[in-house]
């Protein structure tokens, strides 16, 4: 392809990526090193609100942002270096916890407890997603041609559901005397409260994520299975390879690039775990990094946000994903060079 034609084809998408990915990223990076605040002044304010029977008036010293001639709040932006990162990471308290060798103390630091959950969540669900996906793919591949369509459709359903909705529906099955909790209670004869302690909520979150994402792995692997070289399978059969040996030495090596692909996608997705925390109202027991960013970004009751810490936390999440992806990507790179 001519260089000019190539540029014409690629240009629009490069432009979009610069505008919608690179530019916001640069802006978040910039904000994580700066602090933008309104300039406040102390004022005496008399406030009268409904009382019973008559109004209650109170005079209080409050702070008010200064407004410019156009009625806009005047803000000032200062460079604060790594201050916002320090506020998120709390290095002094981290050191104190490490010095004391206390896991509980470490888990009381919001960022580190969120990192703990996020990593465990990502790493624990990965093999389960790949394993379940592969099992479904093999099972579907071996079912009768006639019912393959419906089976594929049903297996895909969990992946089609919007994540928050899926999480909420699982929550309703279990919360309070939800039907599944009630069923478990009558089966075990014990009073069960799935939302009363951290580990049951965590367990539900892992299961939910595997249930939700396994169909994606299934579809990818199922497509891969259609391209397995049948000659190689037959050769292995003639050599007396068992079903397991054929899977282990012929089929899985063939699917390996797809496993890496699913791994990369899953690592990126799972590290940004957020819907589960919302859906299962888990924030009292477990936090994720993405939830932390959201908490900073949400305006408080009187309308202020912690944009700088939110930016720092978002950058840290990105760095985390980059580190995690380094492992499978290195493998891809090696394979690429080997060829």
């Amino acid at each position: 392809m001519k260089r000019k034609t190539f540029m014409i084809f690629v240009g629009p998408s490069v432009f979009m990526m610069l505008l919608f990915i690179a530019a916001p990223l640069v802006s978040v990076l910039w904000q994580s090193f700066h602090l933008t605040q309104p300039i406040y002044t102390q004022v005496e304010v008399e406030t009268c609100t409904p009382g019973f029977p008559a109004q209650i008036c109170t005079t209080e010293t409050q702070i008010r942002p200064q407004l410019d001639d156009n009625g806009k709040i005047i803000t000032q932006t200062t460079f604060v270096g790594l201050q916002s990162y320090r506020n998120v990471l709390e290095p002094e308290r981290l050191r104190a916890a490490l010095d004391a060798g206390s896991w509980d103390q470490l888990m009381n630091l919001r960022f580190w407890s969120a990192l703990r959950f996020t990593l465990v969540f990502t790493i624990l669900t990965l093999p389960l997603v790949i394993g379940t996906g592969l099992l479904i793919a093999l099972a579907v591949n071996n079912t009768l041609q006639r019912i393959k369509g419906p089976v594929i459709f049903i297996s895909l359903l969990p992946f089609i559901i919007t994540p928050v909705i899926g999480a909420l529906s699982i929550r309703w099955l279990f919360i309070g005397d939800g039907i599944l909790t009630a069923a478990l209670e009558s089966w075990t004869g014990r009073d069960i409260a799935m939302f009363a302690q951290g580990w049951t909520i965590e367990l539900m979150m892992y299961l939910y994520r595997v249930w939700h994402v396994a169909p994606f792995a299934f579809v990818v692997f199922y497509a891969g299975l259609q391209t397995v070289n049948q000659d190689a399978v037959e050769a292995a059969l003639i050599d007396g390879a068992t079903r397991f040996q054929r899977l282990r030495y012929v089929i899985i090596p063939h699917l390996m690039p797809l496993v890496v692909f699913v791994t990369i996608i899953h690592l990126m997705d799972a590290y940004r775990v957020f819907e589960e925390i919302v859906g299962f109202s888990a924030s009292a027991h477990v936090l994720s990094l993405q939830w932390l960013t959201y908490e900073f970004l949400l305006p408080d009751g009187t309308g202020s946000r912690a944009i700088s810490r939110a930016s720092a936390s978002a950058m840290l999440t990105m760095i985390g994903i980059a580190i995690l992806l380094a492992f499978p990507l290195r493998r891809v790179w090696r394979d690429h060079k080997g060829r």
Partner: peptide, 21 residues
Amino acid sequence: MNKHIGSMHNALGAGLAAYLT
């Protein structure tokens, strides 16, 4: 009805559960 209670309310909301758990 002041600006600071919003921030305090947020800090309480994020920090209290640790005591109850």
